[in-house]
Amino acid sequence: MKFIKFLIPVSVLLFIFSTKTFAQDQVTKSGIGFYFNPHYSAMFLENHVGNAFGFNLGISSENRKWTAGFRFFSRSGPINEHQEYDLVLTDGQTYKGKTVLKLGADHGYVGLEVAYNFRLSDDKLLLRIPVSFGSIGAGFYNKGEDRITPDGRRVSEWEDDLQAGNDAGFGTALEIGVEAFYSPFENLPYIAFGGGAHYTKTFGYESFLGGDDYYNDKLRITAGMYFSF
């Protein structure tokens, strides 16, 4: 909550500043525009950082002040190899003779986003205030040799059985953030580099190992390229 308390006044100040800035701007672009922002992201989860890849993609208004589109990112298990979660089996349950399993975790988010945009420093610096609302799905899964099941059943069936039928969960999520992108090339103004910080809140997500708060109330930072025209 500290982050969102910080974010709200910063966003208000940026909004006021942007209104002034736009009054001085010469808007030279015309027609509906497009933007694409492939990025790496790091979410500060309990005791570790969750690595993910994703993109934002959509259209921009004629004056380029507003953008609307999709936000899609996913935290994949294989790029978070060092992050393991102990699943302690109880009630005499075993898996391949083991009573403790090391699990991996992954999640995906897809949602709509709307952002307010403004440019500084002769159009070279783009600042954005995006808000996104969408769906999150996340789970915990068997890793390595434990993906080869002892009886030929699909591994997801085992994961479900071993985690009380709740190895993964789904919910809705809200993100609000600030982003900055700098365009260094005179002859390629469509390409910029930068990133942002986002506050993530989830609603209704729950899983056996993650509880209902695993991805809730978290900070996520992003870094990537921003293409727009």
Binding site: F53, S74, D106, G139
Partner: peptide, 15 residues
């Protein structure tokens, strides 16, 4: 190409 993947209830490719 690089990026996360998923399908078949989590049984298939993850990256």
């Amino acid at each position: 190409y690089f990026g996360p993947a998923n399908g078949a209830g989590g049984d298939t490719l993850k990256f």
